[in-house]
């Protein structure tokens, strides 16, 4: 018998691995995906397929260039989570080059250039989104209206045609796209329309008392709760984020309901739930200590509210997350847990 290679205990494992964790996240996103398809049409599927193809090409090229083993890293699913996050953020019927350039940027500049999985300081999906938001503001704010609102349900092929060519034969494009609730509230405010009125106009499209965006958010929440149970994500992230955001909106809504939207609207509009369960929970770029995670999530919640209400963008999640990413090392430094037997 040859001397065995020296390895340290433990010689057993709970059989969890990175791929499984990532896959769980991906599965948790399915309810939201289906809701999205139901409410906004098949645009997102086309976008997602486009993104996956981009992902495969970019990952392969980058891993080759970095001299890393391709297969284990391309199948670690981390890139999939990135592009899924990004796909949910962009308008479902935006031109094809939006998602391609966004994914490419997110993967190259958000991940590989920092050394790949585990080494990136910024959330790649949010980096890609911020890149798109700044580079193509017009395309990024023109959302496909929910079919219930536009009164037209577009098919998969129509979506694909539209995404690649920019028009659908025999259809008025303006009827299909419009502003998101967050956007309309913002523009409404600038035109002197109170938040209450803006929301009331939106309410016409409500399905069982919830807007389409509200339903997508609920779907995200369902997947998120499942992830907490399976320990794919820590509870501190959604609790901290939603708590801070909810508290902020509650307080300001109490101060002036005409100026500040109510808590339910804040929590169920835009990418709130997507961020709470899928984006800020990205462990690589988040704080790791239990307290730190909570603080990190709270910080994002507050920043999101600030940017939404007083900033220049209708939804500030990307910037809030990127800002808090910078603060992670500091948070980690000051939130180290008390070690057993040590005094504080």
């Amino acid at each position: 018998m040859n001397a065995p290679e020296l390895s340290s205990s433990p010689y057993t494992h709970n059989n969890q691995n990175v791929r499984k964790v990532m896959l769980q996240v991906q599965i948790a996103a399915l309810p939201a995906l289906f809701t999205h398809i139901y409410l906004f049409g098949f645009g997102i599927v086309v976008q997602w397929i486009l993104a996956v193809m981009t992902l495969l090409i970019v990952e392969y090229v980058m891993l080759r260039m970095r001299g890393r083993p391709v297969l284990p890293f391309i199948t670690d699913m981390s890139g999939l989570i990135t592009i899924t996050g990004l796909v949910f953020c962009i308008p479902p019927d935006s031109p094809w080059w939006i998602i391609v350039s966004g994914s490419t940027f997110a993967l190259i500049f958000g991940k590989h250039l920092y050394g790949g999985l585990g080494y990136n300081p910024f959330n790649p999906a949010m980096l890609g989104y911020a890149f798109l938001l700044i580079s193509f503001p017009v395309q990024m704010t023109q959302w496909t209206l929910p079919s219930s609102l536009s009164g037209h349900s577009i098919s998969f092929l129509e979506s694909a045609y539209y995404i690649f060519t920019g028009h659908i034969p025999g259809m008025n494009l303006d009827a299909l796209t419009g502003a998101t609730p967050l956007n309309s509230v913002r523009t409404g405010l600038s035109q002197g329309i109170t938040v209450v009125d803006s929301i009331r106009t939106e309410a016409s499209s409500h399905l069982f008392g919830l807007s389409s965006w509200g339903w997508v958010n609920v779907a995200f929440m369902v997947g998120g709760v499942w992830m907490i149970i399976t320990r794919s994500i820590s509870w501190q992230f959604p609790v901290g984020f939603l708590g801070a955001l909810g508290l902020m909106s509650f307080i300001f809504n109490q101060i002036d309901p005409n100026l500040y939207p109510p808590m339910s609207f804040t929590l169920l509009s835009g990418g709130t739930m997507l961020a709470a369960f899928f984006i800020i929970t990205d462990p690589v770029t988040a704080s790791t200590t239990p307290k730190g995670r909570f603080i990190y999530a709270c910080g994002i919640g507050i920043l999101v509210y600030v940017i939404r209400n007083w900033g220049a963008f209708p939804d500030g999640i990307a910037f809030a997350i990127l800002l808090m990413n910078i603060a992670v090392p500091l948070i980690d430094q000051y939130t180290q847990p008390r070690v057993f037997g040590h005094k504080r």
């Binding site: 969890q16 691995n17 990175v18 964790v21 284990p72 670690d76 981390s78 790949g116 999985l117 585990g118 080494y119 320990r231 820590s234 462990p283 690589v284 988040a286 790791t288 200590t289 239990p290 995670r293 847990p337 008390r338 070690v339 057993f340 037997g341």
Partner: peptide, 17 residues
């Protein structure tokens, strides 16, 4: 694989390291 900073180890550590 590279560490993804998931924090599982920290949650499992009996001495809170």
């Amino acid at each position: 694989m590279p560490c993804i900073r998931c924090g599982e180890c920290m949650d499992a550590c009996p001495v809170n390291l």
